[in-house]
Design a protein around this nucleic acid. Structure first.
Lengths: 134, 134
DNA sequence: ACCAATGCAACCGTAAAAGTTACGAATGGC
DNA sequence: GCCATTCGTAACTTTTACGGTTGCATTGGT
């Protein structure tokens, strides 16, 4: 795959599952559809399970299922479940020389943080059901 | 550096230059401030020059200067100048098996494209002057 | 002529992520 | 109880993006 593949894979898979929410799917099936392999699928979907968007069952008739109705899963849920932070800079070790520089740096970081938040708000406006349906 | 460093470097540099817009700065000076090296600075600032946000002069007393007033440079200008596409997936070679899959894929891409556009609109609401000033 | 600066191309090093293999644990069918 | 199936996870390899580095041509002021 390529860039942004986790979010893309997650969205694609969830949208697909939204088509028949009761059906149980294996990571192999999903990997087939997504053109990748089962382990990668399990890695990504594992994050979604941690966030309560999916459930998984082991064993013979195991697989994955939506934990909520498609209209109750927003893109923000997915984005946050994957720990994505596309805009904001996770800076924890910045040590600019003078305090003026430091202040400016804080400004830039703060602005990017605001942009990140508005991105999440925008993502929260769309549900998986909407992706599929219209 | 780390992730998102191009945008971060560009924003930081422009905000800094906005402090005294008439002053000419060398890529060495800028690199010093940003904790990186001159070539990287020229690479990033070169994109901003192509987009008309900065001017550069070669030769002995050469360097970089803002091409516009800080209040006339928005974060969207910078983002687009750097060819960043943080949300949208640049897919040009997708060949899902069946047409149903294909349609769904288009849907997901389309939604991400919309999100990308709203991100740019959000970025356009803030100018470099605002980053610095408040 | 000299020096200081950009412009640019070619390379190296590294870090993040996908891909792969392997194996253990759980679960249901027989 | 046995066995196939599936998830869970760890370890490793491969790929890729990008910052960093070096070198050199070009430009322009002194």
């Amino acid at each position: 795959m390529k860039r942004n593949s986790r979010l893309s894979l997650a969205l694609h898979t969830l949208s697909h599952m939204a088509g028949s929410p009761d059906r149980l799917r294996t990571s192999s099936d999903i990997a087939e559809h997504a053109g990748t392999n089962p382990v990668v699928v399990r890695r990504v979907l594992g994050k979604l399970r941690e966030a309560g968007l999916l459930t998984s069952e082991k064993g013979h008739a195991g697989g994955w299922r939506l934990a909520r109705k498609p209209q109750d899963i927003t893109l923000a849920d997915v984005y946050l479940a994957l720990d994505e932070r596309m805009v904001a800079t996770d800076e924890t070790k910045e040590t600019p020389t003078c305090s003026v520089e430091h202040a400016l740096h804080e400004r830039v970081s703060g602005v990017l943080e605001e942009i990140e938040e508005s991105l999440v708000r925008r993502l929260a406006e769309t549900s998986i059901a909407e992706v599929r349906g219209a």
